Amino acid sequence: MNTATETRAVIVEREIAHPPEKIWRALTQPHLIAEWLMKNDFAAVKGHAFTLSGDWGSVDCRVLELEPNKALSYTWDAMGLESVVTWTLTPKGAGTHLRMEQKGFRPDQQQAFQGAQYGWQKFFGNLEQVLGRD
Rank of each mutant, 00 (worst) to 15 (best):
K46I: 15
G104Y: 05
G57N: 10
T3G: 09
V45A: 05
A43Y: 04
P19S: 05
P107I: 10
V63H: 02
K46Y: 07
V85W: 01
A26W: 00
N126L: 07
L81I: 13
F50Y: 10
W56C: 03
D77G: 10
N69A: 02
T7K: 14
F105I: 14
F105L: 15
F105G: 15
F113T: 14
I16S: 07
W36G: 04
R106G: 13
E21W: 08
C61N: 10
L64C: 09
T86I: 02
E82V: 04
L27I: 01
N40P: 08
S73A: 15
D41Q: 04
H97V: 00
A49W: 06
Q102A: 06
P19N: 06
L52Y: 07
I11A: 04
E128F: 02
L98W: 01
L127E: 08
F42K: 01
D108K: 10
P19Y: 08
W76Y: 13
E65R: 13
R133K: 10
I16C: 09
Q29C: 12
E128W: 02
A4V: 10
I16V: 14
R99V: 00
A49F: 06
L64T: 05
D41E: 06
I11C: 05
G132V: 03
A49Y: 11
G119Y: 01
E13A: 12
E21C: 10
R106V: 10
F50Q: 09
R25W: 02
T7L: 15
E13L: 07
H48D: 00
K46T: 15
R62I: 13
